[in-house]
Design a protein around this nucleic acid. Structure first.
Length: 844
RNA sequence: GCCGAUGUGGCGAAAUGGCAGACGCGGUAGACUCAAAAUCUGCUCUCCGCAAGGGGGUGAGGGUUCGAGUCCCUCCAUCGGCACCA
């Protein structure tokens, strides 16, 4: 049966909360007054730089963006109301592979695809009601931005922090491009998941390793401990020694039959355990080690070449799958241990990586688990050289596993009996004296590969001249523009190679014919300095002016996902340190405080993905419940750094809450406006001050879930006061509590609170109000409830005046009828009294 | 294998070493209504009990303490990250 519902004619209906009407109205108002625009300086206010990781313009704003940006917006608005001049910029990290994939797939230009996505995301971002400063927007794929990425590349080049070299690179056969080591995830391409293979290729790198030691310091930085640990592990500093073994190898280009066919070369190796040098029973080279070919004896050549060949075809994933079993092959060659003089066989094994240390390992099977497994597999000798204090050396050949415990040296010639820790220093000293080795520090961190054989990135401003070689483009000739229309063929070479008007150019030095570099820059370059450009986005003379950067940097709060804990956050730190040393910046670290938001999961508690069908599209939920409800629900879900599963009923609950809040606030309009204030503070007022205190602390720590819970408590108190008639008797207390509540929720529900504040008769926006303050005295109740324990077990609660002293409370507690039975016939041995908390009788 | 995090009602979760489960969802009973929606009110960890009241309870087991979800040790489970780093 269908009936026509009556038109809303009564007063209640006319004042209903209708987010669909008020939200667009306020967004239009804010856009018209350019509310988010932040001046560089406001007299009497400190600047506060509140940064959020800029999005990649994939085309759709997903619920994860909403989560991230709502927390950032709420925190920024909170800081603004606390009196800071808050900069809250937004932009787009717009270069990258997806645009190129789209171009190949749909025959569109990456530029058109990207700009269309940005336009779409502008609309979606504006739906959030966030207080972005659109006047500072940056789009990294536009020439007025990437011109300065190129300029910075040249600064790094001049400073000797950029170099080009041919070396093995990670190569993704699907994307036809190289990847930084940091971009390889479990041996697979981070973007497409294809297994990565190794390939020799010319490429540009940045010397981030020059800053390894300084990047290990985090003095005075308010960062999650977990992220600091991850960066430390990523840099992976280890102290030890470089030991130069010697080998007789065939001279390059000579045949074995030649008279002067051989020469002695040094083979350096890094070890963290120089104290075990006398326990070396074999030596291992990485399959890619340059000496492998020359050290291999003619009889072993076939076997070694086959092994090296197989290893080069193996991806890291395949190397991993042989977990536990070590493979390798004997080269027939030997090296001499420079300390002990022992001659040991040289093997090639893929458990040794060329990229770490010197690509070689001195095999000490007795005291290293991997060396032990290798020695067992191939029947190599195992010699104990360290014995724990007070323990006799034993036959290592009989051991079932290696022993890494420290102790005193044995079987180590002149060093026998030396404590291992001292032996390390003593052996290093002897090696340095004899010129056969030295103390050394090794890092896991490698230089940053910044070349991409792609179109959709900033061109690298380098020209190759037959006469003058590699020539940087003069900085006043920037930008090197990306051509507008190109063909996309995944050939393995950048499409720029096939655009003659780009590729063919003239040498900046001699004006003769030359060619351009066709590789483009890693997009992590763009995101390593965008926070500097926000400070001075319109500057046409320089990437930024010193003056403007000094007004804002370093960033006070940086919010973004934990997936960027290492790469982006390490690169940005490196950029700032290098630019400081070049004289472009005056500070050491870009981000003072860092916060990682959690992840929104599907209602099935799983990561959202199209294949699971558990993806929540924000737009539909927003049109149903409004942006404020979605914002509040996301922040109420759980701790901001934890995320949690999406639940449709949860949004409904929050929508109901906002409606209740609305009704509680609107009710104030019906109260007499001229009422006198209460002579003594009403309970509503005490609750108000308590909640202001709590919410203020919660916001400061980005604990939005508990902030909202506290706001709900105050709302419930007001609602009860309305129902009971208390509100009518104390209209001033009620009205003031409502006014506080509306301001407290302004960061989380900006539209709703703006509307309510205006209805309360204010002409200035709620978002321009000062943050509510509290009176500490009013956060205390006049009567407090004190739990009474006997032997730690709760037996009663008693009500006493808040200022009652211990003796009074003890007397009341002891006299309580519920407590009495537990104290009868017992001796009170001890009384624990925690003021304001509890009283505990210890009886026996 | 190594490193890190997390385990609390039917669910999301609260809790500076001090009344475990705030706040919300769901459930349930009721008010209003011809009825429904919306709104409002009560109850909702569990067991025993008509009740008053009492017992148990924060992954498992130990420990420190007057007192432990919280601190320490061992173990189990789940989720992340890294992975032959010499």
């Amino acid at each position: 049966m269908t009936t026509t519902s009556p038109k809303p004619t009564d007063a209640a209906e006319a004042t209903r909360y209708r987010p669909q009407e008020i939200e667009p109205k306020w967004r239009a108002t804010w856009a018209a007054e350019q509310r988010g625009t932040t001046p560089d300086h406001v007299p009497g206010k400190d600047n506060y730089y509140s940064l959020v990781m800029l999005p990649y313009p994939s085309g759709d704003l997903h619920i994860g963006h909403w989560y991230n940006y709502t927390g950032h917006d709420a925190f920024s608005r909170f800081m603004r109301m606390r009196g800071y001049n808050v900069m809250q910029p937004i932009g787009f990290d717009a270069f990258g592979l997806p645009a190129e994939n789209a171009a190949i797939k749909r025959n569109v230009q990456p530029r058109d695809w990207t700009l269309a996505n940005i336009a779409n995301m502008h609309d979606q971002l504006k739906l959030m009601g966030a207080n972005w400063d659109w006047s500072r927007e940056i789009v990294s794929c536009l020439p007025d931005y990437y011109q300065w990425s190129q300029w910075l590349f040249l600064e790094f080049y001049k400073a000797g922090l950029v170099y080009r070299t041919k070396a093995p690179a990670n190569w993704c056969p699907n994307c036809n491009t190289t990847l930084a080591n940091e971009q390889v995830v479990n041996g697979r391409c981070e973007r497409c998941g294809t297994e990565v293979i190794r390939k020799e290729i010319d490429q540009w790198l940045m010397r981030i390793t020059n800053y390894a030691d300084e990047l290990l310091r985090f003095d005075g930085m308010d960062w999650p401990e977990k992220t600091v640990t991850m960066q430390r592990n990523w840099i992976g500093r280890s102290e030890g020694a470089e030991v130069r073994f010697t080998a007789e190898v065939r001279r390059a280009g000579k045949k074995a039959s030649d008279a002067d066919a051989t020469e002695t070369v040094e083979v350096p190796v890094f070890t963290t355990r120089p104290d075990t040098i006398f326990g070396v029973t074999f030596f291992v080279l990485a399959p890619e080690h340059p000496l492998v070919e020359r050290i291999t004896t003619p009889g072993r050549k076939k076997a070694v070449r086959a092994y090296v060949e197989a290893a080069s075809h193996q991806s890291e994933i395949e190397r991993q799958s042989t977990e536990g079993t070590k493979t390798g092959v004997f080269t027939g060659g030997y090296v001499t241990n420079p300390v002990s003089g022992a001659r040991v066989p040289v093997w090639v094994a893929d458990y040794v990586l060329l990229s770490y240390g010197h690509g070689a390992v001195m095999g000490v099977p007795a005291h290293d688990t991997r060396d032990f497994a290798f020695a067992r597999t191939y029947g190599l000798p195992i010699v104990q050289v360290v014995a724990p204090e007070g323990e006799e050396p034993s036959d290592a050949a009989q051991w079932s596993e290696s022993r890494s415990a420290m102790g005193r040296l044995v079987n180590s010639g002149a060093f026998d009996g030396t404590v291992a820790a001292e032996a390390k220093a003593a052996i290093i000293a002897e090696m340095e004296a004899r010129g056969i080795g030295n103390r050394a520090i090794n890092y896991r961190l490698r230089d940053w590969l910044i070349s991409r054989q792609r179109f959709w990135g900033s061109p690298i401003p380098i020209v190759y001249c037959p006469e003058h070689g590699t020539v940087p483009v003069p900085q006043d000739q920037l930008p090197v523009l990306l051509p507008d229309h190109v063909d996309f063929k995944p050939t393995g070479e950048s499409p720029l190679r096939y655009v003659p008007e780009f590729y063919n150019t003239t040498c900046p030095i001699c004006a003769g014919p030359a060619t351009r570099e066709t590789d483009t820059l890693d997009t992590f370059i763009c995101s390593s300095w965008y926070f500097l450009r926000y400070c001075d986005p319109g500057n046409r003379e320089a990437p930024w002016s010193q003056d403007k950067v000094d007004q804002w940097m370093p960033v006070d709060m940086y919010i973004g996902g934990p997936e960027h804990a290492v790469m982006h956050l390490l690169y940005a730190r490196f950029f700032v340190k290098a630019l400081r040393d070049m004289g472009h910046l005056t500070f050491d670290e870009p981000f003072k405080r860092l916060f990682h938001q959690g992840m929104v999961l599907g209602s099935d508690n799983q990561k959202m993905s199209k294949s699971r069908g558990n993806v929540i599209a924000p737009d539909a939920v927003i049109s149903q419940y409004g942006a404020d409800a979605v914002r509040c629900y996301l922040m109420f879900m759980g701790p901001f750094d934890q995320g949690g599963p999406w639940n449709n009923q949860g949004v409904e609950g929050i929508a109901r809450y906002l409606n209740r809040l609305w009704n509680v606030a609107i009710f104030a309009e019906s109260l007499p406006a001229t009422a006198k204030a209460d002579a003594t503070p009403h309970d509503i007022t005490r609750q108000q001050h308590k909640v202001i205190k709590r919410i203020t602390e919660h916001y400061a720590h980005l604990r939005f879930n508990t902030a909202l819970a506290a706001a709900m408590e105050l709302t419930n108190t007001l609602s009860a006061a309305r129902e009971s008639g208390e509100a009518a008797q104390h209209p001033t207390a009620y009205r003031e509590a409502v006014a506080a509540l509306v301001r407290l929720l302004a960061p989380l529900a900006p539209h709703l609170t703006a509307e309510l504040w205006q209805r309360m008769g204010h002409t200035a926006s709620v978002h321009d109000q000062d943050w509510p303050t509290f009176d500490e005295a009013l956060t205390q109740d006049a009567i407090i409830t004190v739990p009474v324990q006997v032997n730690g077990k709760l037996r009663a609660t008693v009500e006493v005046a808040a200022d009652a002293d211990e003796a009074t409370i003890r007397a009341v507690a002891e006299g309580d009828a519920k407590v009495q039975p537990y104290l009868e016939d017992k001796t009170i041995r001890k009384v624990i009294y925690v003021p304001g908390k509890l009283i505990n009788f210890v009886v026996g």
